[in-house]
Amino acid sequence: MADFLGMMKQAAQLQSKMQAMQEELGNIEVEGISGGGMVSVRMTAKMDVKAVKIDPSLMKPEEREVLEDLLVSAHSDARRKAEVAMQEKMQSLAGGLGLPPGLLGGFGS
């Protein structure tokens, strides 16, 4: 019975820490860049896009397709960085609870 109570306590701690981590992920921002800095996308580690910056030289009708491609590329770059930030937070959470590596891998994805 003591083992079960210990597991329940650990599960409650995990839930509390997961909630705190979700809040932290909303405060972590990353920036994805493409076109040598001509386009940037800023987002949180929770994948919420916060800002998009576009160099004025791309604001021409003949540059539309280039701009579209650069936006997709900058967003993808930001998303990869956000995923890395999320994984790092998950690893620190798992390490703080003494859980085996990879146990929290499915959360937040």
Rank of each mutant, 00 (worst) to 15 (best):
R79A: 06
G96A: 10
G106Y: 01
A20M: 02
M38G: 02
L70H: 04
F4N: 07
L58R: 00
G37D: 09
S109N: 08
V39F: 06
L67S: 02
L5C: 00
S40L: 09
G35Q: 13
A11W: 00
M43N: 09
E29P: 01
M43P: 09
M38W: 02
I54Q: 03
K89A: 14
G6K: 10
M18G: 04
L104C: 09
V52F: 08
E88R: 12
M7L: 09
L67V: 05
N27A: 12
A2E: 13
R42Y: 02
L5V: 11
L71C: 11
R79Y: 06
L104R: 05
S57N: 13
P56H: 12
Q22I: 05
S40P: 03
Q91W: 00
L67D: 02
M90S: 12
A94L: 01
V39I: 05
K81G: 04
S34K: 00
L97V: 12
Q87H: 11
L99R: 07
G26F: 11
I28W: 00
P101E: 08
R80E: 13
A45Y: 06
G35T: 08
L103S: 15
G108C: 06
F107H: 04
I28P: 05
E24G: 01
M47Q: 13
L71P: 00
P101Y: 09
H75S: 10
Q15V: 00
V52A: 01
Q87N: 12
L71D: 01
Q13I: 06
M1N: 12
A82W: 08
S34G: 04
P56L: 05
M86K: 15
M21V: 10
Q19G: 09
V30Y: 11
S73P: 00
A20V: 06
L71V: 09
I33Q: 11
V72G: 00
K46H: 03
Q15N: 11
A12E: 15
A2Y: 11
E29F: 05
K17F: 05
D55A: 13
E31T: 15
H75L: 09
L58I: 05
S34H: 06
L104P: 10
G32I: 03
A2G: 03
L5M: 12
V66E: 03
A51S: 15
L97G: 11
K17Q: 11
I28L: 07
F4W: 06
G35F: 05
A85K: 12
P56W: 04
R64I: 10
P56Q: 14
E23W: 07
G108R: 04
G105R: 08
M21W: 08
N27R: 14
D69W: 00
V39T: 08
M38H: 05
D55H: 13
E24F: 01
L93H: 10
S40R: 07
K53I: 04
A45W: 04
G6H: 04
P100R: 11
E88S: 04
Q91Y: 07
A45Q: 07
K9V: 14
